[in-house]
Design a protein around this nucleic acid. Structure first.
Length: 159
DNA sequence: GCCAACGTTGGC
DNA sequence: GCCAACGTTGGC
């Protein structure tokens, strides 16, 4: 019996990496996460989990599509690379501090669901990304909230 | 560009 | 271990 699928939201600035870029590449290592809480959530991710792909610092910011976990947590190689923006001199190969997961493309929404819409939707009350000042780039999402966002997007993806 | 939120760092 | 200073995120 496989473990029950879980649901997540992951933020990315579209100037850095967008849903369009993921569509083109099919899958991508989600590197650069340098927050322990976000890292710990990534470690809980399992193949087949679904992800709301969120565009932050965008016009408008909001959910741009759906992704899925195709590879579970492993050390993020950028932490060892002195030339990388994500280099962490305090991390060693013996005891890596940061992980990434491999994320696969599922769907790009016809229109981004803006944060404003999420906040205004009574059915999404309590969703972490709608909380004022929420900066965490990886958060768990309740199944009901995930399904609601799919519905708002007119998505055919089945949660 | 501003600034609120909040995680991290470092002095003590 | 406390907490002020600092840096970053991210909406607006």
């Amino acid at each position: 019996m496989p473990t029950k699928r879980k649901y997540w939201l992951m933020k990315s600035e579209p100037d850095v990496f967008s849903i369009e870029a993921l569509e083109k590449k099919k899958s991508e290592g989600w590197d650069g996460v340098r927050n322990y809480q976000a890292r710990n959530f990534m470690r809980e991710m399992r193949e087949g989990d679904l992800v709301l792909f969120y565009h932050s610092n965008a016009k408008p910011s909001g959910v741009a599509g759906v992704a899925t976990i195709v590879g579970e947590a492993r050390p993020d190689p950028t932490q060892f690379d002195p030339k990388s923006d994500y280099y962490d001199a305090g991390s060693t190969r013996e005891e890596p501090r940061w992980d990434l997961v491999e994320v696969g493309f599922v769907e790009k929404f016809e229109d981004v669901i803006p944060l404003e819409t999420l906040k205004a939707d009574a059915k999404l009350e309590g969703m972490l990304v709608t909380r004022k000042g929420s900066r965490l780039s990886v958060t768990p999402v309740e199944k009901a909230h995930f399904e609601r966002v799919l519905k708002l997007a007119g998505s055919k993806t089945r949660a």
